[in-house]
């Protein structure tokens, strides 16, 4: 593909996103401006604001003191408590993949490819993206609502008034916990997906798990696993930062908290998928097959 055509695609996506961001970005009541132009400019404003937000977060997060206690608590909250959900979603994907591909492969007489196909598609794409979407639903909404309600009840002001930086104390550990836990959750989802895929396959045509995995790994290796798993660090950053950003700018009572939480889920899912497009392209360039 030519470089310029990719650029044009990016610009088009950016414009579309700017327009779609506006209704959910929660920019308070009272702005009744309509029209594509102002919608786009508000979307761009949102990008500017979240850019500034991320920058000040990165600056603050790098200087001591570090919030280790908070970080550990949040890693448990975000990571361990999302595990059942992520494991279930991963297993479901494993079963679905096995059901679908079995028939198609049988038609081409390539049934022996089944394990590789399941392993590759789970490890390279389904596992990471499903994990990120499930987490952005559970954790994004949670962070958005939690920080949003702290904002509207002046608890964030109270933190500032007691000379504690809310970026360091609230935002940095949440973003970091998301970034650390997503790859781990992804590995769990991959594992469950592969095992569930094997189970679904074994019911129809018994095969030892060991053989299934050996066959599965014939066509793939760490070169597939590592970049695909580590790209979820970026997803974690997106989920954490958007949740915190939407929460910290909540205004207007309970309704504002609701908006913050909805905005966090919608925008983080959207940006996870868009980031995936860019990351997959990047991984293909950096780690050619």
């Amino acid at each position: 593909m030519k470089l310029w055509s990719q650029f044009v695609w990016c610009a088009a996506i950016l414009l579309a996103v700017s327009v779609s961001v506006r209704p959910v970005s929660g920019s308070g009541p009272g702005d009744s401006s309509t029209g594509l132009r102002s919608a786009a400019s508000r979307g761009l404003e949102w990008f500017g604001d979240i850019g500034v937000f991320s920058w000040s977060l990165i600056k603050d997060a790098l200087t001591p003191p570090y919030e280790l206690r908070e970080l550990i608590r949040l890693m448990d909250e975000i990571g361990a408590r999302s595990l059942p959900l992520v494991a279930l979603a991963g297993s479901a994907i494993g079963v679905v993949l096995s059901l679908h591909t079995r028939d198609s492969l049988a038609r081409f007489g390539a049934k022996s490819m089944l394990p590789s196909l399941i392993v590759i598609s789970i490890v390279k794409e389904s596992g990471p993206i499903i994990t990120a979407l499930v987490v952005s639903g559970r954790v994004g909404a949670g962070i958005g609502a939690e920080l949003g309600s702290m904002k509207v009840t002046e608890q964030i002001d109270a933190i500032e008034a007691s000379a504690v930086n809310p970026y360091k104390f609230l935002v940095a550990p949440r973003v970091l916990a998301c970034m650390l836990m997503l790859p781990l959750l992804t590995i769990a989802a991959d594992f469950c997906g592969i095992v569930a895929g094997w189970i679904a396959n074994t019911i129809v045509e018994p095969m030892p798990l060991k053989l299934f995995v050996t066959m599965g790994l014939e066509q793939s290796g760490f070169g597939d696993l590592l970049p695909a798993t580590f790209k979820t660090v970026v997803f974690g950053f997106i989920i954490g930062i958007i949740g915190c950003f939407q929460g910290m700018r909540a205004t207007g009572g309970t309704e504002g908290v609701g908006r913050a939480s909805t905005g966090a889920v919608v925008l983080s899912s959207l940006f996870v998928i868009l980031a995936d497009v860019v990351l997959v392209r990047l991984i293909l360039t950096l780690f050619p097959l």
Binding site: S149, E154, Q155, A158, I159, S162
Partner: peptide, 12 residues
């Protein structure tokens, strides 16, 4: 400085 908020603003 000690600050008391009108609605107390305790951490829930």
């Amino acid at each position: 400085i000690g600050f008391l908020f009108q609605q107390a603003a305790l951490y829930d």
